[in-house]
Every structure is written in C-alpha cells, then in structure tokens.
Simulated assay, not measured.
Amino acid sequence: MLHRTALCVGINQYQNFPSASLHGCVNDARDMAALLKDLLGFEDSDIIQLTDQAATKANIMRELRRMVEGALAGRYNHLVFTFAGHGTQVPDLNLDEFDRADEAFCPHDLAKSGPQWDRDHLIVDDELHDLFVQLPPSVILEILLDTSHSGAGLRAADLLMDRKPRYLPPPSLEAFRDIEYRRARPAHIKLLEKGLSHHILWTACKDSQTAADAFMQGDWHGAFTWHFCREAMASGNHLTRAKVLAKIRSDLSAAHFTQTPQLDCEAVTRHAVMKAIEVPASVAPLPSDMPS
C-alpha cells in the first residue's frame, strides 16, 4: 500500500525584489496539487501547498524535513516535491564543485548579504541533496522543478510572446564575476548522485536554457508544468515517463518555446508517469527508449 505525501511550492512574489515578480508559479503549485489528487488519488491531507508569503526558506525546508523524517520512520514510501519559481547560481563554498558554481532556488524571502545572496534565505542544491540522500531505496522521491539557473539560453523571441524567464542573475557585478567563468553542474547530477539514483527528477529545461513563465489559454502558467499536467492527465497514467516527456517536448516545440525539459531516473522510467513503485537498492540501467 502506498503511503504518500507531497509539497507543492509556487512563488510569484519576492518580498525584497518586487520587480522580479512572476505570474504563473502559484497556478503551477495548484495545478500540480490537483493532478496528484485527480490522477493518483492523493487526499487533500496528503498535500501541502506553500505559495508566495508562505513559501519562505524556513517553511519549505521544514516541510521537506517532515517528509524525509516521515519516510525514515516508515510512514511514507512515496514523496513528491514540486517547485515553481526563480532559480539562480551562487559560488561553490564547500569545494564539491571544483571551479564550478552551485545551483540555487529562490524562496519568497530571498535576500542579499553584501554583494551576494544571503544563504539563510536561499536554498542551495547541496542542501536538498544532503536531505534527500537519507532516503532508503524503498522510498520513491519524484521532484518536478519548473525553474532555471542560467540566462544563457534566453532569446529575444521569448520576451516578445508574453513570456518571462524564471531566472534571477546574481545580485551584483561582484557576485556575477564570482561565477562568470564557472559552470554549475545541472540539477540532475547534484540531486541524483551519491545514493539518489533510484529517484526521479523532472526539470523544465536544459541547464543552459531558461524556463518560461507564460500566458497560455487565458492565464499564466509555467510552460513545462502546464504541458506536463495536460499530457499526464491525457495519458491516464498509462504511458511511461519517457513517452510523456516526448509529448511535452513536442508540445513546447510546436508552441515555439526554446526550452527542452529533462527527465532523469533509471528503471522506474518504464513505469507510468507519477506511478510510485518499490525499487531495490541496485537498479537497472536507463532504458534504451529514454530521450536524450
């Protein structure tokens, strides 16, 4: 029997940076919560939604710790974490990214400390990895990130089509120079390495691209989340994750989005989208039909 819990985060408003506001992230959190209920049978009590003012670093990390501690205590065997909002980069401080930067996620209370982001109000990928690596192999963790950590792929067309990038650059010229010649490893490498290879990670774009906050069919959404929810519901949870990914990529390309969503997982790719299964400690290699 599945015992599950989910955290859906969506941040449109940034307390200290009103000019950085987005439009579709709260809708994304609501859409993902609805998908979990309609497609997988989650109950309202299984899902925590943190949006805007509630989505501080302290609140997000508290809920993630609750999920992991519950899994370690045997209360949960299926965890889902979705995040929609700005991403950024910071200099690597613990030298696990030699001559690289760290990817980071911007909570509502994002703040500066001198020329850099204040790490007490920023969620660095190291923190997520160190938390999630505690999970036993029998627990499935599915992460969906509708954010980006680089502005390199931003194109003029994206700014002309009711779209906004979900990316914040470093907060000062000095901070930018600290990472200018560095390159952050993609989120899937950090979050799924060293004991996390049996979990599942969806990201809205390649590490060199920008995820779009977009006006579609009368309202704002994350382009990736909107198409993910649509294709997942259309599949009836019968298509594999890899096939759903292929459909989302096709949808985005047809709508002239420049982002290419990514899916990283191993044996569970064979199973229906968002379906949790027990996975042994040693899992099979990637299936041959996995899109690149």
Rank of each mutant, 00 (worst) to 15 (best):
C8A: 13
V9T: 09
G10W: 09
N12I: 06
Y14E: 12
Q15P: 08
Q15C: 11
L22R: 13
A33R: 15
K37A: 03
K37I: 04
S45P: 02
D46G: 06
D46H: 13
D46E: 08
I47C: 11
Q53P: 13
A54M: 06
A55Q: 07
A55V: 13
A58M: 08
I60T: 08
R62C: 07
E63Q: 14
E63M: 06
L64F: 10
G70L: 01
G70P: 04
A71F: 03
A73S: 14
A73C: 05
H78Q: 12
F83G: 08
P91C: 07
L93D: 10
N94H: 05
L95I: 04
F98L: 14
A101P: 04
A101T: 05
F105C: 11
L110F: 12
A111F: 09
Q116A: 12
D118C: 06
R119D: 00
L122M: 02
D126E: 13
E127S: 05
L128M: 10
H129C: 02
V133D: 03
P136W: 08
P136F: 05
S138N: 12
E142Y: 00
L144W: 00
L145G: 00
D146T: 01
T147D: 00
S148A: 14
H149D: 02
S150I: 06
G153Y: 01
A156K: 13
A156C: 01
D158N: 11
L159F: 10
M161A: 09
M161T: 12
K164W: 05
L168Q: 03
P171K: 06
P171I: 07
A175G: 09
A175P: 03
F176C: 04
F176S: 09
R177G: 05
D178M: 15
I179W: 09
Y181I: 03
L191I: 05
L196N: 15
S197R: 12
H199Y: 00
H199V: 00
T203D: 01
A204F: 00
C205P: 00
D207T: 08
D207Q: 03
S208L: 02
A212T: 01
M216E: 07
G218P: 04
H221K: 11
G222L: 04
F224Q: 02
R230A: 09
R230K: 15
E231I: 02
A232W: 06
A234V: 02
G236P: 10
N237I: 01
L245P: 02
A246K: 15
I248M: 09
I248Q: 08
I248N: 09
R249C: 04
S253P: 00
A254H: 14
A255V: 04
A255S: 04
H256Y: 06
Q259F: 06
L263A: 10
V268Y: 00
H271G: 10
H271W: 07
H271S: 10
H271F: 14
V273S: 08
K275R: 15
K275I: 09
K275Y: 12
P280D: 15
P287E: 13
D289Q: 10
